[in-house]
Simulated assay, not measured.
Amino acid sequence: MEFRIFTEPQQGATYSDLLKVAKATEDAGYDGFFRSDHYVKMGSVEGLPGPTDAWTTLAGLAVQTSRVRLGTLMTAATFRLPGPLAITVAQVDQMSGGRVEFGIGSGWYDTEHTAYGIPFPALGDRFDIYTEQLEVITGLWTTPLHETFSYEGKHYRLTDSPALPKPAQRPRPPVIIGGRGAKRTPALAARFADEFNVAFSDTTVAGEQFERVDAACRAIGRDPAGMVRSIAQVVCVGWDDAQVTRRAAALGRSVEELKRNGLAGTPAEVVDRIGQWREQTGVSRIYLQVLDLHDLDHLELIAAEVAPQL
């Protein structure tokens, strides 16, 4: 089982905060450091000092870390044009020495779009945009050197693009797709994804979605075994019940709710819960949503007492 740390900086974090967590992630032996791609906070938190841009952050971390994988869950297709986004991600991959993983979704949070003047089309149109972005971005990355890339879609048209720069990873960085859509999402994952992620769901919902993705892979002649299955879950671990309670209180949530909807409890409890996930869904990678970015001891405890048992 691989463990990655997943942060939500729109809830309130500076680049300095994220750098400390990323370095702690690396030092503790986790596989990766990931962040959301949002421009507006959610819930009752103030979200100060305000959002940090996902790919600007990852560019900085690319040169200030040395081992952990870096990426997004998920970059919103509505935020950026596919050509410039392909350039940005390729450059960050080069800066990191080939450690980037590209999570991308259709975009869903209408509030951040209206807050910053970003167009927010209807869902069907957003999914069309999402599909074309994947076609363009992966097409640019995989075009052979000294050849050009052209594309004619409903939303994007590219003519004789030099398709540069190339990412450090060849033919391209891993692509992560996720979500619970029953038809178009699995079909898109079968075409493009190296990893499929189901976030903040129970084992039944996640298992059913993984099966849909497997079926979509088989429908196009792809072996589903080549797709990494992953989940994202909020985490709250403590040496004992008292520490679990204190950490839950710092998040403004109850222990009971966190145990029901995430990975919470003592190390033994969380190891048991992750074992259930593995047995029931076949996941091999977990993104641990860490909401208190100042509690670095939390990361060390999980790395020392949970990860070695799995």
Rank of each mutant, 00 (worst) to 15 (best):
M1Q: 07
R4A: 15
I5R: 00
E8P: 02
E8A: 14
Q10K: 05
Q10W: 02
Y15D: 08
D17T: 15
D17G: 05
K20V: 07
K20E: 14
G29L: 09
Y30K: 05
D31G: 04
D31L: 06
D31F: 10
R35E: 13
R35M: 14
D37Q: 09
M42C: 09
E46H: 09
P51S: 12
P51E: 13
D53I: 06
A54R: 09
T56Q: 14
T57D: 05
Q64W: 10
R67L: 09
L70D: 05
G71Q: 05
G71R: 01
M74W: 05
M74Y: 15
F79S: 04
F79E: 08
R80N: 10
G83Y: 05
P84M: 08
A86N: 00
A86V: 06
T88K: 12
A90M: 00
Q91T: 14
V92S: 06
M95E: 06
S96A: 15
G97N: 04
E101P: 00
G105R: 02
G105Q: 12
W108P: 01
D110T: 12
T111A: 14
T114S: 10
F120Y: 14
A122Y: 03
L123D: 00
F127L: 15
D128R: 11
Y130S: 03
T131V: 01
L134M: 14
T138M: 11
W141M: 03
T143A: 11
T143H: 03
P144Q: 08
H146Q: 11
Y151S: 04
G153K: 05
G153S: 04
Y156A: 13
T159H: 13
P162Y: 09
P167K: 09
A168M: 11
Q169C: 01
R172M: 10
R180I: 15
R184F: 04
R184G: 09
P186A: 07
L188M: 10
A189D: 07
R191A: 10
D194R: 04
N197L: 15
N197Y: 09
A199D: 09
S201M: 04
D202Q: 00
D202Y: 06
V205D: 07
V205T: 14
G207P: 06
G207V: 05
R212D: 09
A216G: 07
R218Q: 11
G221Q: 01
P224F: 00
V234Y: 05
V235L: 13
V235P: 00
V235T: 12
C236Y: 03
G238A: 05
W239C: 01
D241I: 00
A242L: 03
Q243R: 03
Q243F: 12
Q243I: 03
A249N: 08
L251P: 02
R253V: 06
R253N: 07
V255R: 03
E257A: 14
L258W: 04
L258I: 07
R260H: 11
R260Y: 08
N261D: 15
G262Q: 13
L263Q: 01
P267E: 10
V270H: 12
G275A: 07
W277S: 05
R278G: 03
Q280P: 02
T281A: 07
T281C: 09
G282Q: 11
G282H: 02
S284N: 04
Y287A: 13
Y287K: 03
V290D: 01
L291Y: 03
L293I: 08
L296G: 07
L296K: 00
D297P: 03
L299S: 06
L301M: 08
I302Y: 09
A303M: 02
V306L: 08
